[in-house]
Design a binder for these strands. Structure first.
Length: 262
DNA sequence: ATGGCTTGAGTGTCAAGA
């Protein structure tokens, strides 16, 4: 079973890339962030034709999350229960017995700003949600754009980014809070080359110079981490014409998962 | 230098991203 996450920065623009990537990788589950569209214009038909069911929690212009899956999506739930939020950033569903949580975590704009305070409150609310969800669904994966570089090795220039947005200690502490729930960073379960990132700025030749950050992650609960065989960041779509500024992250799990799985 | 791209909104040029 292959599960993946990709911030597409507008699904309207990036749908051809998504369809090509699904065909190439044969991913079983793909979480999308920043679809930037309302539910009524979500391309369900095109995805069905490609062999994927989908659920979407979207809004006009900003945010928007989706889960695509070859299997049936069960117990679909939008947003963070008990956290009032206009922004469409969370969607969860159960696929083949695995609870898939797709999240587009707030950017925060600048340390100390109102948006930064919102980010930290939002992250705390998500952790509270996950604590409950892990009780009900021990096989849980949290995939998405975290907008957090967990460690200095996830940053192309740690000195320049020190205490800046995406790298500040309170944000990294929030990330570690997810780990403290028993989740593991799938990427770090394996030996990885240095200087691997998932996002590069569109400006100043950020991608060509590999000035990036690793801010897109797949976290796995213990039963799933034990079944994880690989985790890679696929830079290929970032090299295409009109790319997203993010690359997809893909984790491979053992196929025999969940009571319902075939 | 609060810049430098890209997107969506909407038809001016700005907000937001990270």
């Amino acid at each position: 079973m292959k599960i993946a996450t990709w911030n597409v920065n507008s699904l309207k623009v990036r749908l051809p890339h998504v369809l090509d990537w699904l065909a190439a990788t044969q991913a079983d589950v793909l979480c999308l962030q920043e679809t930037k569209m309302e539910d009524k214009v979500f391309p369900y038909a095109e995805l069905e034709a490609a062999g994927y069911h989908a659920a979407h929690n979207g809004q006009k212009t900003y945010n928007g999350v989706a889960i695509l899956a070859r299997g049936t999506l069960e117990d679909v739930r939008c947003d963070i229960p008990a956290f009032a939020d206009e922004q469409k950033r969370v969607l969860a569903a159960t696929v083949n017995g695995v609870r898939v949580v797709c999240a587009y975590m707030p950017n925060g704009q600048a340390v100390g700003s109102d948006k930064y305070e919102y980010k930290l409150r939002w992250l705390a609310a998500l952790a509270t949600m996950l604590r409950d969800d892990l009780q009900r669904w021990p096989q849980l994966a949290l995939l998405g754009d975290y907008n957090i570089a967990p460690e200095d090795r996830d940053v192309h220039d740690p000195a320049a980014w020190k205490d800046q947005i995406l790298c500040s200690e309170p944000e990294r502490a929030a990330f570690r809070q997810f780990l403290d729930l028993g989740l593991a960073d799938a990427f770090r379960l394996f030996e990885q080359p240095a200087k691997i990132y998932s996002w590069w700025d569109y400006r100043q030749m950020g991608f060509r110079l590999n000035r990036g950050l690793r801010i897109d992650h797949i976290l796995l609960s213990k039963p799933l981490a034990a079944e994880c065989r690989a985790c890679v960041i696929d830079k290929a779509p970032r090299k295409l014409e009109r790319p997203s500024d993010h690359a997809p992250v893909l984790a491979t799990l053992m196929a025999t998962l969940g009571a319902e799985s075939a």
